[in-house]
Amino acid sequence: ETQTARDSAFAAGQPLGLGRAALPEEISAWNLDVSPDGTGLPDGSGDVMTGEGIYLEQCAACHGDFAEGLDNWPSLSGGEGTLDRDDPEKTIGSFWPHLSTVWDYVHRSMPFGNAQVLTADDTYAITAYLLYSNGLVEDDFVLSRDNFAEVRLPNADGFIEDDRAETEYPAFSTEPCMESCKDSVEITMHASVLDVTPGNEGDATGDAPVEAALD
């Protein structure tokens, strides 16, 4: 009876029998992500020169011929040694920890405006070219699932797990001062983009981009 069925199904967190089995073809169509250990990489391969061809055709207009970036579009190469300086330049070569991320992102998200159409071979080739443009492989390099794990990106060790619980929370969890907390207060900096208050057109057109944090 209804009441009994409800009790058993809803109360115990049992499956309700909703949805349907995902078919193998469907899972392959969407389960495209690639993990650092190469899990998810399909068959196929591609070399630097083939990659350069595709890249120049499909990518260079935004990212520059040698992946060096163009205008406000992201640069994909260069920037080595800038991470501990002001305004680091973060590229595949200077910043990214895993090659899998390059393959995966290019394959699923690029080219911008016409995404999810690159073949596995295309993507191996472009990835090989991006390694080359970052000075990480020679021009005869061929990338495939077999040698994928051998490629180590320069900043692979550049990341630590969130350590705020140790480095910040204790310091920021003391009883705050309420009175006469400082002797004096001076203004040390003024807003550098003063004309940001926009009209009604919905676009705050300021001056030069001082810090374009979102690129």
């Binding site: 650092p36 501990d84 973060k90 920890p97 990341f159």
Partner: peptide, 27 residues
């Protein structure tokens, strides 16, 4: 394990003064 996709490596990681970057800064 984590996929370490572009949005959790190239972006949404927080580079400290010494050039090392925090990842998985979710909260």
């Amino acid at each position: 394990g984590p996929v370490e996709s572009r949005e959790e490596t190239s972006k949404y990681t927080d580079t400290l003064a010494n050039g090392v970057s925090r990842k998985w800064t979710w909260v």
